[in-house]
Design a binder for these strands. Structure first.
Lengths: 262, 262
DNA sequence: TCCTAGCATCTGGTCTGACCAGATGCTAGG
DNA sequence: CCTAGCATCTGGTCAGACCAGATGCTAGGA
């Protein structure tokens, strides 16, 4: 099944072979790879080499290891976890600024709303409505539960939008923003009247999605983000946000006939 | 009742500590980590444990190892390579579909064009023009150089757009798509007349950016992607692309009335 | 007969010590 | 002063050993 190693670093060849075996279907999710000691024989390499290869595959989310099993490493093939972990790291090491994050979220969030307005089913709408209900129903002090319900609402929208990549990346971005803002401006969003304002905005977005008004759903998302985070930004940064926000222009242009609210 | 004091796997702790050290700036790009044998002492673990940790960090793109150096693993902190590799894998194991990728690129690419049209300086324009010149000037057979020039053009646009996060992610997405499509439809894009068509499209985008026509720049990007990759997609997938493409609607909406699919 | 305690045996996780090939940098000889 | 050459460092690999935990068979008790 596997051929011994010849060129380059040995563990890289092991990774490549197992990776290929998973990609072209010789191993499917739920299957079990041979045990480390069995792989040692098949590849004719030492155990540490096999283990380093397995660490990489595990890091990529292709396999999961667990001791004690008599079966071997389990093929999981769910790379979303590793993907968002790495994305998180990339955001951290690159020192992404808050305005970059918010601007990016403005793009992805409004596009997700736009797509959701087109593709939403009754089931999706029910999930969104449930999340809004949760938001409105949480205790005024329980900002934790409120944030959870908020995340649930956005997750429902992403699901309706039907783009798996967008789901992953938006998720990471939203987390990163929450982290940043919690550290930066720990003021009082999501409490008191701001809370009610939040619920109202979400309800508006829901209405737009429900009636299939993609433009409105996207626009509401952008306005909402400008309103929420604009206060934490410098005038110069605000200007960058407003480029995408549609006081006059839409996210991708087409000022066309609509949105001349100015 | 009795909880074990021994935490998880040792190498995970090593990864976490080094990762944190890089994230909060104790190591910067270009710095050198202690050598494996030095890390063994500092962490009080075996070398295999350290090595497994280094493999993971290397896989995430945080460090690079090279034998013979008297310095140690080099901190690189460029995760784009690892990210696009994982993205590739995610598509192969069908966690993410090709249409997801293209749709996402449509969003990010057109938004980058939109921002670039607003924010471009003379210097940015010069870079773009140079890249187009390179594209037009490459040998007809040298698709490698052509692809490099193409990437250079897009990099210049991202730079003009001025969003670091968008730069990273677009870069990753573009790489992944190129890889995937090379494997999927190895037909003859970027050769012969298609090549000329490519150059023409890029020139149009340049013109739009140059004159500050953000809407046109964004729209051209979407049309171009639909044209290039649409052929590799099923009708159902094409429809998802066209949702974002603006035969009638812009990426984030504004044409309203188009959305009567249901 | 059925059930369960217990053990052999498997798994991954870790450590030690060793060797190799290649790169580095100092040093001795030109 | 320059350069050839060697000591020494690096990462890459291997072999062998031990541990803790999970599995599954088996023998003994109900």
């Amino acid at each position: 099944m596997f051929t011994p190693v010849t060129k380059g670093r040995a563990f890289e060849s092991v990774v490549a072979q197992i990776e290929a075996a998973i990609y072209d279907g010789r191993f499917k999710t739920g299957d079990y790879l041979p045990s480390e000691r069995a792989l040692v024989e098949q590849f004719s390499v030492g155990r540490s080499t096999v283990r380093e290869a397995l660490r990489i595959l595990e890091n990529m989310g292709l396999i999961k290891t667990s001791p004690g099993s008599h079966k071997g490493p389990r093929v999981s093939a769910s790379m979303t976890q590793g993907l968002s972990r790495m994305l998180n790291g990339a955001v951290k090491v690159e020192q992404i600024s808050l305005v970059d994050l918010v601007q990016y979220r403005m793009m992805t969030g409004s596009t997700a709303n736009f797509l959701a307005a087109h593709l939403r089913t009754a089931e999706h709408l029910a999930e969104m409505a449930e999340a809004i209900g949760l938001m409105a129903g949480t205790e005024p002090g329980d900002s934790e539960a409120f944030a959870r319900a908020d995340a649930q609402f956005h997750a429902a929208i992403r699901k309706a939008a039907g783009n798996a990549l967008m789901d992953i990346i938006n998720n990471v971005i939203e987390d990163a923003i929450v982290d940043l803002v919690r550290d930066t401006v720990d003021s009082s969003p999501r409490t008191g009247q701001v809370r009610a304002e939040f619920v109202r905005t979400h309800q508006e977005i829901y209405d737009a999605i429900e009636r299939g008004d993609a433009e409105a759903a996207a626009s509401l998302s952008r306005h909402s983000l400008t309103a929420v985070y604009g206060g934490a930004l410098s005038p110069e940064e605000r200007r960058r946000l407003e480029l995408l926000d549609g006081t006059a222009s839409s996210i991708a242009g087409t000022t066309s006939s609509t949105a001349s609210t100015e």
